[in-house]
């Protein structure tokens, strides 16, 4: 009974215990009560470079290699040589097209599908220059294609790395460090470039059924 009376007392006096709300008289007297904050609207940033330089151009979407048949391991070897020297030390950049020449007639099912000296193009997918501490350059060339063959029938990739000098630069830098920090001098030793001369032969494959497009 005493507890119930105490709770009722608390309930009646709670507003008095809570204290009075402090009002902002300046706001109430000087500002318009109908003012409401504007709702947040996300600003959409536009890519002006894309709009200016790419929009409206005919840019086909690349076709992914999702329709492959790796059970088909047959392929006709296509021997190529570069038309001109390919080097990571030159002006080659990612996405550049490099030209190759077929070194002998390519025969499939008794028919010559690529004649000797015909041209094959490929794309420099990635080029990474040589660097300090003997770190080598590397190059990836793929997407071989010929005007006389259907798309995706030439299959191959060139993935080469220059001379890796870091394997001896690393121990040398440690060895030379006690001598007044001479190991830091190894910083300036660069790795090897990748050079593919027109005399070198590269092998890729002609695989007419391995990759399909237009499904």
């Amino acid at each position: 009974m005493i507890i119930r009376l105490f709770l009722a007392f608390l309930l009646l006096t709670s507003s008095a215990l809570a204290g009075e709300l402090i009002r902002d008289e300046l706001v109430e007297t000087t500002l318009d009560s109908s003012l409401k904050p504007k709702p947040y609207v996300q600003k959409v940033y536009k890519d002006k470079l894309v709009e200016k330089t790419l929009l409206g151009k005919n840019l086909p979407m690349p076709v992914p290699n999702l329709h492959y048949n790796y059970a088909d391991s047959d392929g006709v070897v296509v021997k190529l040589r570069p038309k001109t020297k390919i080097s990571t030390g030159g002006k080659l950049r990612d996405g550049d097209v490099v030209k190759f020449v077929v070194t002998q007639n390519i025969v499939h099912n008794g028919r010559v599908i690529l004649e000797k000296n015909s041209e094959v193009s490929a794309v420099v997918e990635n080029i990474s220059p040589n660097d300090r501490y003997g770190v080598p350059a590397s190059i990836v060339i793929s997407r071989f294609s010929s005007e006389v063959l259907p798309d995706k029938t030439l299959d191959g990739e060139i993935n080469l790395q220059g001379k890796n000098n870091s394997l001896w630069v690393y121990p040398l830098s440690y060895f030379l460090m006690p001598f007044f920090g001479a190991g830091f001098g190894t910083t300036f030793i660069r790795g090897g470039n990748v050079n593919i001369s027109p005399d070198e032969t590269i092998e890729i494959y002609y695989r007419p059924t391995r990759f399909r497009t237009g499904l």
Binding site: N126, S128, D131, R132, G134, V135, S166, Y170
Partner: peptide, 18 residues
């Protein structure tokens, strides 16, 4: 892994592009 110790950022850039 040796060249990766010296110039790791070069390989990261390459990995991003690949």
């Amino acid at each position: 892994f040796v060249p990766h110790i010296f110039i790791p950022r070069k390989y990261e850039r390459k990995a991003d592009q690949r």
